[in-house]
Each structure stands twice: as structure tokens, then as C-alpha cells.
Design a binder for these strands. Sequence first.
DNA 1: TCTGGGGTCCTAGGACCC
DNA 2: TCTGGGGTCCTAGGACCC
Length: 417
Amino acid sequence: MFALIDGNSFYCSCERAFDPTLRGKPVVVLSNNDGCAIARTHEAKDLGIKMGEPYHLARRRPGLEHVIWKSSNYALYGDMSRRIYEVLTTLVPQVEPYSIDEMFLDFTGINDAPERAAYIRAAVLKATKIPTCVGIGPTKTIAKLANAVAKKDRAGSGVCDLRYADQRASAYGELEVGAVWGIGPASAHKLKAVGIATIADFVAAPDEEIRKLLSVVGLRTLWELRGTSCMSLSMAPAPKKSLAVTRSFGRAIEEWPDLEQAIGAYATRAAEKLRRHGLVASAMQVFLQTNRFSKMDRQYVNQGSFGIEPTADTFALIKTATRAARHLWRDGYRYAKAGIILLDLVPSREQPASMFPSIDPERSATLMRTIDIVNQRFGRGTLRPGVVAMRPRWGMRRANLSPQYTTRIDEVMRVRA
DNA sequence: TCTGGGGTCCTAGGACCC
DNA sequence: TCTGGGGTCCTAGGACCC
């Protein structure tokens, strides 16, 4: 049995915890650069402010004069999240943080689950001043759904219990399948096309049909909704597999030196993150794009990914990232966003034994032999391990953009090692 | 003028090998 | 002109989440 607890309008509630004058008022927390709304109190929601709504448009809308707009403060939110976690660990045997404001709880063997949930809510509120909602169910997916139901019922108790089939049956009939954790807009659309609109329709559908439509991921969700648990609680967080630093520019960039500077800063930040997590990376991805919201600008988006040496220091990361960005750069566009993603992360203590960390040891041994043979034949230094490790793996890709924004890409680029 | 910044997983298909 | 079959690895791309 699982429970999912999450903070109501979490970022806003954190702001309120430290500034009681914000209570009862419409508060919105903004994304980086104060770009758009990422958290809203229910007073702000009632004024029609939408998730992701651009600040520069919303701030001028009539009727929103009294809204309090806050820049985000992630250090504060992270700290509040930790405090909530600590309270929870004293109340249940197992807590799995899922996101900054959500945690799954082990509710196995608890008969008075709703009462216990109410108690936990009160304890968290008392200790952190953060209001929460709790959903209870036999699987994570059901607990997540129950949580959503609890949240929607603003006048309710803040707890929703979907432990039993009859409780679920009535809820499933009223909820759209898109409300399910794991069923996004694309999947909901596909399901609708075959006449599956509600969760009740979904759980009644044959496994094979869902598998064909939504792959094993959808099938797992289906089973979870029927009450068969396919996802367990894990206490240890999964090791990080990638790490990104991406930003929209405050103002469009049109000159290479400006981008060079930005990329340098991103690479520095990425290197910092890498060190803080005690990781090394053996691949890097760099991307560049124009403002996809602009109807006037010509659109261009491109990315490159390639292997890097895991021993690269900050300076080497900057150099490599800059070189990659230079290859992606095209004059005459107004760039709005860029980023660096580090991939193939491994803990730095376990430095890969081979020079070729993204390749398995046997293959890298073969490569080493190849290098030896070539070098014996053609002279030392003809091939160097670094060169082979840096073998460019450039690929072209149109990032998640609507067709109207995609640019025809007809050139395959190469970075010379 | 100004529209977030992160992450994960799955699958198809090509390259390559035997 | 015909043109194996099976396996693995890698990349691109799509979809999802917060």
C-alpha cells in the first residue's frame, strides 16, 4: 500500500512560510529570468493565471493588479523539501522522494490509512507550514491519482482514499484518462481515437490493444490502475545518468562572441555540478536554437553529441563545448536558447578502467590492440587513444519542435579530433 | 523586448559482426 | 539479377514526468 504526499502550490507555500503577509493573497512564482509562471496559489489560479503563462503578458492583464509575482528561490524550496522529508521519516518506515514536492510513503499494513494520512498532513504543516494533500492506493499510480483527486477537492479533507475497488470504480468513471500519471497528451489522444475516454474505459480495455498503442509503459500503467503493483518503493535514489545546463537568453544573441561567452559559462556550471555530484562524463551534447515562439524569425535548431574524455577538466570542457557550438553556429539567426548536456555519467571514484568508458572493456581492449598494431606499422603517434576516444559521433536531430519550426538540415557536421 | 530548466524511459532502425 | 539470419550496440526521436 502506498501514499503520495505533495505540497500544495509548493513554491508559493514555501514563500508564504517565510512571509506570512502573503497568506490569502494571489501569489505566483516565476521561472528563471522571470520568464513564466511555474507555481500559483489557488487565489492566483482563480484569477485565470495559467501554468507556464508568460509573465510579460500576464502582468499587464486587467484584473491581475494585486497579484504578487515572486522570482524563484530554489535553494529555499530544496531546503523546505528536505525538512518535509525529515518529518516524514519519523512517521513512516519508508519514504521515497519523487520530486521536490512529492514523496511516496510506505503504507503497508496500516489499517487506518486515511486517519494516519491526516495525522501526517498535520505534522508536516506544524513543522514546516506547508499545506499538503495525500492520496492512498494499492499502487503508486493509484496513489498518485488519489492525490490529484484530493487536491481538486479544495474544501475536502486533503486526503483521498482509493484503496478499494468500489472507491476506484466511481472515481474512474468520472476522470479522463489523461489525468493518469504516465498518460500524457499524445497517449490520451491516441486512446480517444479508439474510443477510450475515461479511466474506466481504459481499465476495461484489453492488454494487447494497450500494448500496441502505448508500448509496455502504457501496459504497466494499465495494470497499476487495476491494482497490480508494478512499481516498488525505492529508498536509494537512482544514480544520475545525465546532467544539463540550459538557459534561454535574456535577449536574442546574434553574434558569435556572445554565444561563446554563454557556452563557456554553461560549461563551467556543468563542470561544477559534475564535481559536486562526484561524477565524470564521457559524452557531451550541445544544442542551439532560435526563439520558437517568434513568428517573424527564421527558425534554426541543431545539436551535436560526441564522446569526451572522462578526465577532461573544466578548461577542456569549455574548449570542447565551445568548439561544438562553433560548428553548430550559423550566421544570420537570432538565437534564443542554448545548453550543454553531459551524458554517460559514472562516479569519479570508479574511473573507467579503459580509455573508452562508453564502450565495454572488451571492445576497448580490442581498440587498444588496434592502435598498437597501427602504430607499429605506421609509426608511433599515428593513432592516439585520445583521438579514438574523441571519435566524433555527430548526429543531426530536430529537437522537439512543431513541424512549422523545423529547419531543413542537409549537412552532417564533423568535428576533427 | 520579454515564453523554464531540468530529468527518465522506450522503440525503431542502421551499423556491424559472425 | 539474385541477395541469409541472428545478435548486439548505438543513435535519433518520441513520449512522459516535475
